[in-house]
Design a protein around this nucleic acid. Structure first.
Length: 400
DNA sequence: AAGTTTGACAACCGCGCAGGT
DNA sequence: AACCTGCGCGGTTGTCAAACT
């Protein structure tokens, strides 16, 4: 059964370019009645237009917070980066560019960037990335390490202590203070909640003693605060929680520090409203926050994609840590809940003998390699191009 | 100067999803 | 469960002005 069209084709509605008078009518109506009921809006506003057309005109052109004017180099770079990770998900990309619409970004991509990027891939004379900001380049010097918070992309070793920073393609990378939590990340978390809701209920049904479940509470205020990650993390507390109680966290991985046995009770990930996700056993506690748009990427219902790497901001023993987290890992976790994957598949990396388990290293996506071993032990599936991707992503975080 | 091509961007269209009945 | 409605998204088309021949 097909849907009814949003407006009858028999009606003789205005089409094409909007007149100034139509714009005025639409703006005035929305300003006094709000944005809702697009289907009935044209009639009420005295417009001979399809409701859909009104909506589009308002969202893409008349809205007061629309940013007019050329796309800045910074915006362009962000579009390129995000498109690389998200593809043609224009609305998602637009969400990161205040005042810009998905339509505008889509058009800009199609008319400017797609050609530009094609040229740059064929001819190095056309650089893909905007030139580095001299100020930022300077600030990445080791002399400013006190400004750069202990956020090397270091190695997580067996005892949870980071070894020297990893290198990507021979280049050491460091990170600045993490950016504030963006409100749209909260929205993303709500999507995540949806994804995991059924899994949680199954988990709780199977668990006889729910009191052993661990949760991390994080208030709404924390999520929406402008405080950087470090400050937020300081406010996080671990506690046993009533599964029926609303637990509001930003995505935390709590692993059992003492047991090597994976149990659904001890290795859990709480999301908002008490969602739980079992995780493989590890011998350390990771408290992570998925950085930037990576969480959205992780949620894509794609098959395991070892090429899609997402940066993850994490905190280990009180120190910031940034690593890369493969889409595959998240997908695997989802599959565990869908009972299509044995949890044992996602076992912890043998930190002391990584070279014998390159696949696990890929799946978890972390850089476990020591400084001197990076070149030799780079995962076999990590191509040169992917190395470039890693570097771009991580440099991006550091510049934020 | 006139016709044609190209580029930019506004607008349209169809589809899918979520929520309601 | 089936159907309906509203909305949002992404691909495509239409329009107009500038550039080109």
């Amino acid at each position: 059964m097909g849907r009814t069209p949003c407006c009858s084709k028999r009606e003789e509605l205005n089409r094409g370019a909007w007149t100034a008078e139509e714009d005025t009518r639409l703006s005035e109506y929305i300003q006094s009645h709000g944005e809702s009921g697009w289907r009935s809006l044209p009639k009420k506003a005295g417009l001979n237009r399809c409701g859909k057309s009104c909506r589009l005109r308002w969202l893409n052109y008349l809205r007061p917070d629309i940013k007019r004017g050329n796309i800045s180099p910074d915006e362009e770079e962000l579009i390129i980066r995000m498109h690389r990770l998200l593809g043609n998900r224009w609305s998602l990309i637009a969400g990161r560019l205040p005042g810009r619409t998905d339509n505008e970004i889509k058009n800009y991509w199609n008319t400017h960037l797609s050609k530009k990027l094609t040229m740059s891939s064929q001819n190095p004379k056309f650089p893909m990335q905007a030139p580095a900001d001299p100020e930022q380049s300077a600030s990445s010097d080791s002399s400013e390490d006190d400004v750069v918070r202990s956020a090397e992309y270091g190695v997580i070793n067996h005892s949870g202590i980071r070894s020297p920073p990893a290198k990507i393609g021979g280049t050491s990378i460091s990170a600045r203070v993490p950016p504030p939590v963006a409100s749209d990340e909260v929205v993303i978390m709500k999507s995540w909640k949806q994804l995991l809701e059924d899994s949680l209920m199954n988990e709780l049904d199977d668990s006889e003693d729910n009191s052993s479940l661990m949760g991390i509470e994080l208030s709404n205020d924390m999520l929406e605060s402008e405080a950087p990650l470090m400050e937020i993390q300081n406010n996080v507390s671990c506690s046993a929680s009533d599964p029926n109680e609303s637990v509001y966290s930003h995505g935390h991985l709590v692993a059992d520090e003492t047991s090597n046995q994976r149990t659904s009770e001890s290795n859990v990930l709480y999301s908002q409203d008490c969602n739980v996700l079992s995780l493989p056993p590890t011998d350390h506690t990771l408290d992570f926050r998925i950085q930037d748009f990576s969480l959205e990427s992780l949620l894509q219902p794609s098959v395991y994609n070892l090429e899609e790497i997402c940066p993850v901001q994490s905190q280990i023993n009180g120190s910031d840590h940034v690593s890369c987290f493969a889409l595959a890992a998240e997908q695997a976790m989802t599959d565990i809940y869908n009972n299509t994957l044995e949890p044992d598949w996602l076992t912890p990396v043998d930190y002391e003998n990584q070279s014998s388990q390159p696949d696990q290293m890929d799946v978890l996506g972390n850089f476990f390699l020591s400084d001197e071993n990076w070149q030799e032990e780079v995962p076999t599936s990590l191509s040169k191009i992917q190395e470039e991707e890693y570097r771009d992503i991580l440099v991006d975080i550091s510049n934020n």
